[in-house]
């Protein structure tokens, strides 16, 4: 059986909120290392990969591998019933028909119990190769969100170029063009504002802004976002969570000209 208690229901709420517009029906794969999810969007352009490690829960118990097939719209409805300070416990039997969600108030004696019917989801798992990226950029998540939202007003796609000059986000549209360049930057007082660029080779790739704006819905999960780029491979957009957990998005580049 699965029993996973999360001190902050809000964390799970935010994760589901961040991915629900990208993917609809997902398997939450539970085993003794934690709860993982991998799902592609309908058009097979983007891939979501979430890992909530067992250390993120207290207690965490999962005796055998269980795939919880959940519709995220249904999950969102139920998670709305949790208050942000509530403690969340996910429960399921070994061959479950439902997943149970229990919300407990830390301050009062309220206990709310919900269940969601599970779905049989035939999901293909993709093998994500270990990649030595040509450029890795860590930057404030809010800054990345702002850049994507600003540029989508002008164009459908953005080129991300990383060189020794810094990282340049540029777009061209019908009304004109826009570009934002960031250089490495250290803020001693506010390290969450740092921009760190590690580059082993110059990279230049073009991506659909619609997807990037969608990924940025995860901005509330982490102060910083990490962008990993190599020429001609998918972009990795990573939000790190506590206890070595993470929410990652992969986006296939635009190709040709």
């Amino acid at each position: 059986m699965l029993e996973a208690r999360l001190e902050q229901a809000n964390l799970f709420k935010k994760v589901v909120d961040a991915i629900k517009d990208l993917v609809q029906d997902c398997n939450f794969d539970c085993n003794d290392s934690g709860i993982a999810l991998q799902a592609m969007d309908n058009s097979h352009v983007a891939l979501v990969s979430m890992m909530l490690r067992s250390e993120s829960f207290a207690p965490f118990r999962c005796d055998r591998n269980i795939a919880l097939g959940i519709n995220l719209t249904s999950l969102t409805k139920v998670l709305k019933c949790a208050q942000s300070d509530d403690i969340l416990t996910l429960k399921a039997e070994d061959a479950p028909d439902v997943v149970e969600l229990v919300f407990e108030s830390a301050e009062s004696d309220r206990i709310s119990e919900y269940s969601i019917k599970l779905m049989d989801i035939d999901q293909e798992h993709l093998g994500i190769p270990e990649t030595d990226y040509g450029a890795t950029i860590s930057m404030p998540a809010a800054e990345f969100q702002r850049i994507c939202r600003d540029l989508i007003a002008l164009s459908e796609s953005v080129s991300i170029e990383c060189s020794k000059e810094g990282v340049k986000f540029a777009c061209q549209g019908d009304i004109g063009s826009g570009a934002v360049t960031l250089r490495q930057h250290t803020n001693v007082d506010k390290p969450e504002m740092n921009v760190e660029i590690n580059m082993s080779e110059p990279v230049s790739l073009t991506f659909s802004l619609k997807y990037l704006v969608n990924f940025c819905k995860a901005s509330g999960l982490s102060n910083q976002v990490r962008l990993c780029l190599s020429n001609e491979v998918p972009l990795l957009v990573e939000y790190s969570l506590a206890n070595n957990s993470h929410l990652r998005f992969y986006l296939a580049p635009k190709i040709g000209d």
Partner: peptide, 14 residues
């Protein structure tokens, strides 16, 4: 214009 790549052409099925 540029075409959109498919994530499955980069990450093979397990």
């Amino acid at each position: 214009g540029a075409g959109q790549g498919n994530i499955m052409s980069f990450f093979g099925k397990k």
